[in-house]
Amino acid sequence: MPHARRMLVEDRRWLDDRQFTELLSLGQTLPGPNILNMAVVIGARFHGWLGSVLAALGLLSAPLVIVLSLATLYGRFAHSARLIQILAAVAAAAAGLVLATGGRLATRMDRDAGSIFILVVAFLANFWLRLPLLGILLVLGPLSIGLAWRRLRREQRTQGGAP
């Protein structure tokens, strides 16, 4: 994502910083891969639906070829004991990276009791109880958005009251 910002804002100047931040928040609010959502919206802004299709293809096609080539290589050498060890170590490190991502996101969220409660319930339902994600989202989604809405209204009211 930092790389995408540098290319779009600094090198090509297709967007300014404010537009980039707005598109990022759009990409993150909607479901699906964030960066793909951004690519689709940016493509559409400049060249309509064709721009969207081309932006999505441009974003995905080369990495897709690379990752599938790697997978094919892996398929061919999967019985090698050394490769198994290397990949187990990389998999453990990759799992660690995901934990770090979660930690970093957590430092930026609202930290009232309600949000933390939602976070813990989502974690336990998902990882520990292995409940279906659809159910988790249908229960926690409206609840959490409702709580956030109340928080926002309260903030707006206190801001509105101040001179």
């Binding site: 609010t29 995901v98 934990l99 991502t101 979660g102 930690g103 996101l105 957590a106 930026r108 969220m109 609202d110 949000s115 933390i116 939602i118 976070l119 813990v120 319930v121 989502a122 974690f123 998902n126 990882f127 994600l133 988790i136 989202l137 926690l140 989604g141 959490s144 958005i145 409702g146 709580l147 956030a148 809405w149 928080r151 926002l152």
Partner: peptide, 12 residues
């Protein structure tokens, strides 16, 4: 802001 804590719980 409401989806953020859910996302973080799921990512962890």
């Amino acid at each position: 802001r409401g989806l953020a804590p859910i996302t973080i719980g799921l990512v962890l």
